[in-house]
Design a protein around this nucleic acid. Structure first.
Lengths: 346, 346
DNA sequence: CTGTTAGCGCTTTCAT
DNA sequence: ATGAAAGCGCTAACAG
């Protein structure tokens, strides 16, 4: 493994070939398809390779084989704790194929995504797992491409999707609050430029309307998927009258931000305000009070997505496909029946 | 950008050259060193390139130029919220060099790191930013390699380091608790296989001893850098007698886990137990009560590290260098003077 | 300023 | 089972 002391130039197949007394072709075979050479040759090549500390040049290999043995995971924000678990699911499957998993950030600007999509077209990676609903315009109609959308999605695109039914999940969250007796259920929404956010808004409205409330006019405020985003949105909502008795938040991080904003207004949770989050991050069970939320099967989302990408890479045509997994309501400490005595308004 | 309808074979320099009526060399120049060709040629090449939807093959380019235009960031656990902000600092600088930032996970097993280090030797990336203190044995003495250690480090290795003085920071945290009047200050330590954890333990002991307490025998329990790790370690510590009145935790996530464990024992924070975390994640200010902690300048850590890596890549010899940034004590709501009336033991 | 030529390191026919 | 030879797509000399 260790490069020999004074050998700056890295050993190549030729060095190994010379040392093993075979051709470069044989070295290549012995190392990547051991069954295609005689046991004796294989042995000698392996020894020679070890002795000179040979590591195949990945670029040359990829150039020749026309495949990178790497996939790219694109997330809008690496700071968002929602993604790591999905990525672990992806890695779990990817590593079996001995393909590397690279992670890239699309960032605030949707243009950044284009930049990364180029990595695919440039042959740097074999496929992309897009954990971002914002597909750049030019990419929407590139036909069959080894791209899978995970969790979030762009309704215009035709890439396969793996996700939960976000509308349905939002209905479940809202119904939970409704069942507890809440009537003023406001929504702390995510950023409005992505599909899942609208799905959740629709679900929340639908459940409200189904309960005889005015879903179309219920209070809602959008924000970024972050603690700060949740705080800001909740602050607006809690200033409204009548003040909501419950907040359905589009992510756990937003829910934590919302809880903070509520406390700053002197509100006690869940006595004065019930909160329901979304995702079920590790964090959700650890905060005080523990957060009621909708669990997304993140690890499984990642596994399934990588499995589909593999099929795509193997040339199996995957028809426009939407794989829907189940979400689950996890009731914890932030949701209770509304108190009849209104809390003091500071 | 969009591939033309029926052109499966991706266009190459030759296609562009033909179309622009120039040689492939000129295409290459026009695209990567526009100033080396005439304005007219450049124009024609650019047009031709656009028309055929040309995107240079990254592998071929890297093979020829012997550089990948990519750096690898290695983290022990992508689920740990400590890293993203550092990575953003890295990206901030890296993007100016138009080099891609890839993220890899070393995972629980130290062997995984070796695997990723191969990416460097295989020419897949130009350099590595190691955010993990566990350097694989074989890599410890590979001489001048384009590797920079960030935050955590391996004392055996000679790669440049960018970090805070963890021992000093631990002294600050402990002194804060001491100043409040605490005498039973236990330590929720991180995993014992990494240097910074020992630095912090040493600092905590030192401060205790300097205050006339028995630092060497003070209570301590290690755990993984996670909510669960903090819970488990704190649980052990809180079962001890005399029960600590304060917990200095080796990370904010551990602190949150510790707080959870304390609450489960019926302890109120900070009344019955003071807690000090480490890192100052966004989360620290959002939880209830907000967490007293030691801030690490994460973004700046990332920026500096990438700057050093750049110098390394430019061939400037960087002597074994340890760049120390300042940590800062952030006092919030989880630390107060110990109450004289002991809390009930459930 | 531009073209010709060579070759980065590997894998893959095609022979033998 | 092995070797010879070609070439993936690009850019760096070197001429001109």
């Amino acid at each position: 493994m260790v490069a020999s002391p004074h050998s700056s130039p890295k050993p190549t197949v030729r060095d190994v070939a010379r040392r093993a007394g075979v051709s470069t072709a044989t070295v290549s075979r012995a190392l990547s398809r051991p069954e295609r050479v005689s046991a004796a040759t294989r042995e000698r090549v392996e020894t020679a390779a070890r002795e000179v500390g040979y590591i195949p040049n990945a670029m040359a290999r990829s150039l020749r084989r026309r495949q990178a043995d790497a996939v790219l995971v694109l997330v809008p924000d690496i700071g968002n704790s929602f993604f790591p678990e999905i990525i672990k699911g992806i890695e779990e499957i990817a590593f079996r194929q001995r393909s590397a998993v690279l992670i890239g950030e699309t960032g605030e600007a949707p243009e950044a995504a284009s930049l990364h999509l180029e990595a695919l077209l440039a042959g740097r990676v074999d496929g992309i797992l897009l954990l971002d609903g914002r597909v750049p315009d030019f990419a929407v109609d590139i036909e069959p491409a080894p791209i899978v959308q995970v969790s979030d999605y762009d309704p215009r695109s035709r890439f396969p999707q793996v996700r939960i039914d976000h509308e349905r999940a939002a209905v479940m969250a809202t119904e939970h609050l409704l069942a507890l007796g809440h009537r003023q259920i406001a929504h702390v929404a995510g950023p409005l430029d992505t599909a899942i956010v609208h799905d959740r808004i629709r679900g929340w409205r639908k459940a409200l309307s189904a309960a005889g409330l005015d879903g179309a006019r219920a209070a809602m405020a959008p924000g970024s998927f972050s603690i700060e985003g949740g705080s800001a949105a909740a602050d607006i909502l809690l200033a409204g009258r009548p003040r909501p008795t419950a907040l359905f938040c589009s992510s756990d991080e937003m829910a934590i931000g919302a809880a903070k904003a509520a406390r700053q207004r002197g509100l006690q949770i869940p006595r004065d305000l019930s909160i329901v989050g979304f995702d079920d991050l590790q964090l959700a069970a650890a905060v005080d009070p523990p957060l009621t939320t909708l669990r997304q099967p993140r690890r499984e989302l990642g596994r399934r997505a990588m499995a589909i990408l593999n099929r795509l890479l193997d040339g199996e045509p995957v028809a426009r496909q939407v794989e829907l997994l189940d979400a689950e309501l996890i009731v914890r400490g932030t949701s209770t029946a509304p108190t009849t005595i209104p809390a003091p308004v500071p």
